[in-house]
Design a protein around this nucleic acid. Structure first.
Lengths: 264, 264
DNA sequence: GCTGTGCTCG
DNA sequence: CGAGCACAGC
């Protein structure tokens, strides 16, 4: 006998502004667990009831005023929730739990890093690289079956962006960020599920800027969102989808949801 | 042979935020002329095309950044537009035109007057009374058939408010404002079309605060919006309606439209 | 409450 | 472009 586990991850850019389309997504996809990033709301104002009404009664919420904020909403029990604050700056960028099957699920929102890809000129860029380094130290110590999801704010491969050449000096696709993310991936037995199911050089994007007027016409996307799993767990993955369609919905997030199914 | 003339007036509290419901109203009521107050937009950004598409190709727009702003949108020709600035402060509170039938149509947005009904403590209250006085001087000189509409921000009669007693010291229903409005009405042969068709003590309201959560439940309305006509024109009026239903629409204005039909 | 504005952030 | 916030005005 086998059970399936369906995990979704989505940077929704304000859970309150997006509650309608998140419900729509949950109704159509029915994942067992939904990981959110950029909820942008303090825990007291999190729209918990809306998720409860759809069966997501197990909730691990870590929000803050205005920026960042992560949450795990689940139809299956969640245990041993931990909130890492790797940079000890109080930013709500991580929440992790253990599922009944023993797998740990880690939900992360890596800093965007500002506009200028230079540690000296732009402290936010330094903070981003530092965040990835500290995550790498943490990842080295991870010793159980783990799924790591979230908005990593890095598009590592050439085919992860609409134009490798034009984005080489644009934060999210610079060599220094890609190297940092590669070290994170190498620091444990991480399998990039996106590329496992949709190998390069296939086009795979999860984010389109609001600033580009017609996202589907110009298609200037980047793969900033990721789902990784330790090799043992990745071996149980059966499907992985990027729900591009959600970018065309009314009042969309600039990110779209990722979904992976596992057979345990 | 006779022709009908259907005039509507509506404080829409931002024409851009309300463009959808104004279109809905125009489609269902099809007035010949629509007078708007509180358009809250500079002329360059006025959604002129939306009105043109519905046949309102004759437009006299007097807007300003952020506050106030009036407009006359019409399916019939408009002539001799005049913008009075009675207080010479640059506020866009009036636009008037002449119709082909010879009637003048004057569209006014009288200042709200702030919170405290005291000239000394609250300059806005003084400005409101001064505005009405200056309008009175102008009204005395009006010597042609005229329809005067708009948001007067005064509910003169006891039955114009949900509680006469509780509003006696609330700006919009204080004796000093009512007296000022009465002087304005007496300064020419003005007929209050609202009360002509719906005589006191009938309840007649055109505005419900956003702050009262369920407007229809508590029904704490006031008659702040008015349509007046000189006696000759008033004699040609056949119907006058307050479209209360518009207050229950999605994302409503706090005011509802008034409509009068004339047979010329 | 619900507009507008200006601001920061991505 | 579109979230968040703060403020003013009604």
């Amino acid at each position: 006998m086998s059970t399936t586990l369906k995990i979704a991850s989505w940077n929704i850019n304000s859970v309150r502004a997006r509650i309608g389309i998140v419900e729509q997504f949950l109704r159509s996809e029915s994942p067992d667990v939904l990981c959110l990033q950029e909820t942008k709301v303090v825990d007291a104002d999190f729209p918990a009831a809306a998720f409860q009404d759809l069966g997501y009664v197990h909730q691990m919420i870590r929000g803050q005023r205005m920026h960042h904020g992560v949450a795990i909403l689940s139809r299956i029990p969640l245990h041993e929730d931990r909130h890492h604050d790797w940079q000890a700056n109080g930013e709500a960028r991580h929440v992790g739990v253990r599922l009944d099957c023993g797998i740990r699920l880690e939900n992360v929102y890596i800093p965007a890093g500002g506009d200028i890809p230079d540690r000296a000129l732009n402290p936010k860029f330094g903070q981003k690289l530092d965040f990835i380094e500290r995550m790498t130290r943490w990842s080295e110590e991870c010793d159980c079956p783990t799924i790591l999801v979230g908005d990593f704010n890095v598009a590592p491969l050439e085919c992860d962006v609409w134009s490798h050449k034009q984005l080489l000096k644009v934060v999210s696709h610079t060599p220094i960020e890609v190297e940092a993310l590669t070290r994170l991936q190498s620091s444990n037995d991480w399998v990039d599920l996106g590329r496992h199911f949709h190998p390069a050089p296939k086009r795979l994007h999860t984010w389109w800027s609001y600033r580009s007027p017609d996202f589907s016409k110009n298609d200037r996307g980047r793969r900033l969102d990721h789902m990784w799993a330790t090799r043992d767990v990745a071996a149980q993955a059966t499907e992985h989808h990027v729900h591009e369609i959600c970018r065309s919905w009314l009042k969309p997030s600039d990110h779209v949801p990722l979904v992976t199914e596992f057979v345990l």
